[in-house]
Amino acid sequence: RGVATLWDDSTRPTPAGVAGVLGRSRAELLNQLGSPRSTTELAARTGLTPGCVSQHLSALRAAGLVTSHRSGRLVLYARTALAEALLQVS
């Protein structure tokens, strides 16, 4: 039991320094992207609407913090190395 979340780092608290710069919602989305996730899954995990998540992901992708790739009918988002470094610093 519980092994599935053993390596899931999205349960760690969102770093306050990152939230101060990016905003609470975008920082939380980055935090939740410990493994690739869809817009719908991110919306369910964060309580944001799918449209709001999509807008934030677009901004994060434009900043080079998130990448996206298609997997069947889903578009999955993942953190970039830059986002990983940002989360480690704070």
Rank of each mutant, 00 (worst) to 15 (best):
V3E: 08
V3L: 13
R79G: 10
P50N: 07
H56Q: 06
A62W: 00
T14K: 05
H69D: 08
P13R: 08
R1S: 12
R73L: 09
A27C: 07
A62I: 01
Q88G: 03
T40S: 12
G34P: 02
S10L: 03
V53G: 06
S10F: 03
S68I: 04
G34A: 10
L48W: 08
L22P: 01
H69R: 15
Q88A: 15
T5G: 07
L76T: 10
S90R: 12
A81P: 00
V21M: 13
S10Q: 09
A44M: 09
S10C: 07
S58F: 05
L48G: 00
S90N: 15
H56N: 11
R61Q: 15
A19H: 04
V75E: 13
L86D: 02
G64D: 07
P15D: 03
G64M: 12
A78M: 10
C52F: 06
P15L: 08
V66K: 04
L74W: 07
A62H: 04
A59L: 07
R61T: 15
T14S: 07
L87E: 03
L76C: 09
L86C: 04
H69F: 13
G2Y: 13
V75Y: 02
D8G: 05
R26Q: 11
A59Q: 07
S58P: 00
R12V: 02
D9S: 08
R45G: 00
A59K: 08
S71F: 08
E41P: 00
A27I: 00
V75Q: 13
R12Q: 05
R79T: 09
A83G: 11
G17L: 10
V18P: 06
V75F: 12
V66T: 11
A85E: 15
A81V: 14
S58E: 08
